[in-house]
Amino acid sequence: MAALAWGEWLNWRWSRALVGRGTGASAAVVVLGYRNPQATANLINRWRVRAGIRSTAGDGARGSCVIFSGGATSGGATEAQLMADYATSVLEFDGTVLLEDQSATTWENITNVIPLLEDVDRIKIVSQPAHALKARAYLRRQRPNLAERLVRADDYRPGEWMVVKPLLALYGLWTLRGLKADERKLFRDGIG
Results as ranks from 00 to 15, higher is better:
residue 5 A to Q: 10
residue 8 E to N: 03
residue 8 E to T: 09
residue 9 W to A: 12
residue 11 N to S: 13
residue 12 W to H: 11
residue 14 W to N: 04
residue 14 W to I: 02
residue 15 S to Y: 04
residue 16 R to C: 04
residue 17 A to K: 01
residue 17 A to D: 00
residue 18 L to R: 15
residue 18 L to S: 07
residue 19 V to D: 06
residue 19 V to R: 10
residue 20 G to F: 05
residue 21 R to C: 09
residue 21 R to G: 06
residue 21 R to M: 06
residue 21 R to P: 01
residue 24 G to R: 00
residue 25 A to I: 03
residue 30 V to M: 11
residue 30 V to P: 12
residue 31 V to F: 01
residue 32 L to H: 11
residue 32 L to W: 11
residue 32 L to K: 12
residue 34 Y to F: 15
residue 34 Y to N: 13
residue 35 R to F: 14
residue 35 R to N: 14
residue 36 N to P: 14
residue 37 P to Q: 06
residue 37 P to A: 05
residue 37 P to G: 07
residue 38 Q to V: 14
residue 39 A to C: 07
residue 39 A to D: 00
residue 41 A to Y: 11
residue 41 A to T: 07
residue 42 N to M: 02
residue 43 L to G: 04
residue 45 N to Q: 10
residue 45 N to M: 09
residue 46 R to H: 04
residue 48 R to I: 08
residue 49 V to F: 01
residue 49 V to T: 05
residue 50 R to C: 03
residue 50 R to V: 05
residue 51 A to P: 00
residue 53 I to R: 02
residue 53 I to H: 01
residue 53 I to W: 00
residue 56 T to S: 05
residue 57 A to K: 11
residue 57 A to Y: 09
residue 58 G to Q: 12
residue 58 G to R: 13
residue 59 D to Q: 12
residue 59 D to S: 13
residue 60 G to Q: 11
residue 61 A to F: 13
residue 61 A to R: 15
residue 61 A to H: 15
residue 62 R to A: 11
residue 62 R to G: 10
residue 63 G to V: 14
residue 63 G to W: 12
residue 65 C to E: 05
residue 67 I to K: 13
residue 68 F to K: 02
residue 70 G to M: 04
residue 71 G to H: 08
residue 74 S to L: 12
residue 76 G to L: 00
residue 76 G to D: 03
residue 77 A to I: 00
residue 78 T to F: 01
residue 79 E to W: 05
residue 79 E to V: 08
residue 79 E to D: 04
residue 80 A to Y: 13
residue 81 Q to A: 12
residue 82 L to C: 07
residue 82 L to T: 07
residue 83 M to K: 04
residue 84 A to P: 12
residue 86 Y to I: 02
residue 88 T to I: 06
residue 89 S to A: 13
residue 89 S to Q: 15
